[in-house]
């Protein structure tokens, strides 16, 4: 029963959400909206599990003096601090929670994101090494596209932006859409497998 009940719930509500897409009747859409609200509430409860996971793993790390245990201190302190500040003073504009989010978390997040520029450079260096004919074609296409997208490219040769646009709109778009169609069919068939209970690993044990 531990498996059958979740499977039936998945089948019923999964089928309903598929049907809801095609049925604009208020009876169906309102129930669909209600289901989505239920999902939001269930997801909110999952944060309790998430926090419990963090506290358990890092708490044990500190108590056992495991490897890298000092890193667990700022993690737990930050969690407790933001939780307390948010609960006591609120989370709206001008609150301490919001200030810490904007002036501590956001810059750190931006720093991580900015690393992408350097990683793109190193990855591009490896991608454009011409070892095979295909790699050579890739490098030539990339140079044309890059030059075609900046003003200096048009200054060098006025046809470069046109060729660049053609590469992006014809061969690139065709390949991208082929991958997209395959991925979409894979996603739909996976959804069907989940609804029918053929894929059930994610449900865990009996």
């Amino acid at each position: 029963m531990k498996r059958e009940v979740p499977l039936i719930i998945t089948a019923v509500f999964g089928s309903f959400m598929v049907i809801e897409y095609f049925v604009p009747h208020p009876t169906v859409t309102s129930f669909g909206e209600m289901l989505q609200q239920w999902a939001i509430i269930v997801v909110a409860f999952a944060y309790v599990l998430g926090v419990a996971n963090i506290v358990r793993i890092n708490g044990e790390k500190i108590s056992r003096r495991s490897k890298d245990w000092p890193y667990a201190f700022p993690l737990l302190a930050g969690l407790a601090f933001m939780l307390t500040v948010g609960v006591v003073f609120g989370v709206g504009n001008g609150t301490l929670f919001n200030d810490f989010y904007l002036y501590a978390y956001a810059p750190m997040s931006g720093t991580m994101f900015s690393l992408l520029a350097f990683f793109i450079a190193s990855a591009a260096f490896r991608a454009f090494r011409i070892r095979t004919v295909e790699a050579g074609l890739l490098a030539v296409a990339a140079i044309i596209v890059m030059l075609g997208r900046v003003p200096v490219g048009a200054e060098m040769w006025d046809k470069l932006p046109v060729i660049s646009d053609w590469i992006m709109n014809a061969p690139q778009m065709a390949a991208k859409r082929a991958i997209l169609i395959g991925a979409a069919l894979g996603a739909i068939s996976t959804g069907l497998k989940v609804i029918l209970g053929i894929e059930r690993n994610y449900l865990g044990g009996d």
Binding site: V43, G204, G205
Partner: peptide
């Protein structure tokens, strides 16, 4: 957070 119990159950199984 919602993926945590799923991952735990899946790996355990």
């Amino acid at each position: 957070a919602f993926v945590v119990p799923l991952a735990e159950e899946t790996v355990k199984q």
